[in-house]
Amino acid sequence: MAIFSGLLDAFSSEFGIDLGTANTLVYVQGQGVVLNEPSIISVGYRDGKPHTLAVGKDAKQMIGRTPDSIRAIRPMRNGVIADFEMAGMMLEHFIRRVHRNRSFISPRIAVCIPSGATQVERRAIRESAESTGARDVVLIEEPMAAALGADMPIMESNASMVVDIGGGTTEVGIISLGGLATTRSVQLGGDKLDQALITYVRNNFQLQLGEQSAENLKKDIGSVCLPEDGTDGQTCTVRGMDLTTGLPREIEVSERHMYEAYSETVDQIAETVRDALRHTSPELAADLVNQGVLLTGGGALLKGIDKVIRDTTGLPVAVHDEPLFCVAYGTGKLLGNRLLLRQLAQIGSS
């Protein structure tokens, strides 16, 4: 049996998957991140049964533009599966793209999960991954995956702290001796920021923005701090539907507007980080005075987010060089670390 198991390891593929609310990334051993696509699937219906029309970037272009016969669906919400059937179809499509012609043995997969996921939510993610034909599925909590992917010294006794700001959740983890000593998971991330901006523009400009327009503004001039020179900062033109006339209209949105729209959500994220610190041990908290906090995830790219968390905690704060890929890197590295794999395998079954 041991020989057969060794042969399986030799001929099978190993994938690490960051199954995110906004994007799904797939890491392949020896190649790095080979897929980075929006977590969106578009389906049509034939005899009452859904069939896939587009997945990822192609499906994202359909949001808000589909006829009644087609649905563009985000199967992930707040870091967990909201639509099991659609999540399975989307994940199967991504794995088939990556796994095509790689081997004749089903892959082993590591998938990240929010640290606050319930047992039902963990089981749903596991079953969705298993439905793609994977022969083995390992779950890893997102703060641990982010820290592992960022090459933080997670096996040392000195504490490390990571804050992963994703599309659906913000995950906070204080790690020591290969385990999560303190975690916090809050359903605040890029999606909530987009919704906050849509609400702000609707209330202040009487203009209805689409989700894609809000996301584009976030990427172009998103800021969580007021411009230091006292001006309104950079501006960007955005188009939407006038709520009074129902006609298309465009406005200028500034960095100051972005700050005002985001401030409440960002304050809640910062308070989550502070809450984690308040509930960790004095010894680990002392370590963090020197070690500081590492920011990962797409939200780490927001202008000024490091300053907000630094001002809230009083700790040094750094943004990883590749914040978007840390969780994916971590899931892949987990599969290459048999000791850590055994240590964390209980996450999916406990």
Rank of each mutant, 00 (worst) to 15 (best):
I95R: 04
F205E: 08
D311L: 11
L294Q: 02
Q195A: 13
G20D: 05
R97K: 12
V293F: 01
G348A: 13
Q346L: 05
I305P: 02
N337L: 14
N36C: 10
A261F: 01
E283R: 15
P75R: 01
V55M: 06
L315I: 05
Y329G: 02
M89C: 07
H279Y: 07
D136A: 13
M86W: 11
G32P: 15
E215T: 07
R126T: 07
A2E: 00
H257T: 14
I305Y: 10
L340K: 11
G233C: 12
T170F: 00
H320M: 00
V172Y: 08
T199Y: 12
D68C: 04
V253I: 11
L341D: 00
D275I: 13
V293N: 05
I81Q: 01
L8F: 10
E211T: 10
A150E: 00
V319W: 00
A22N: 04
E130C: 05
A318E: 11
A150Q: 00
T265G: 00
G168N: 02
R256A: 13
L197N: 10
T245W: 06
Y27Q: 13
D58N: 10
Q31W: 06
C236S: 14
A270P: 05
P282M: 06
Q29F: 01
S223V: 08
T231H: 04
E130N: 05
Q187N: 13
L294R: 00
T296R: 04
N158H: 11
G246R: 05
H93V: 07
R310D: 05
D68S: 10
A10F: 01
G167W: 02
L344F: 03
Y262I: 05
L302V: 14
V186L: 04
R74L: 15
E37M: 11
E271V: 07
V43T: 09
T66W: 05
P153H: 03
A345K: 08
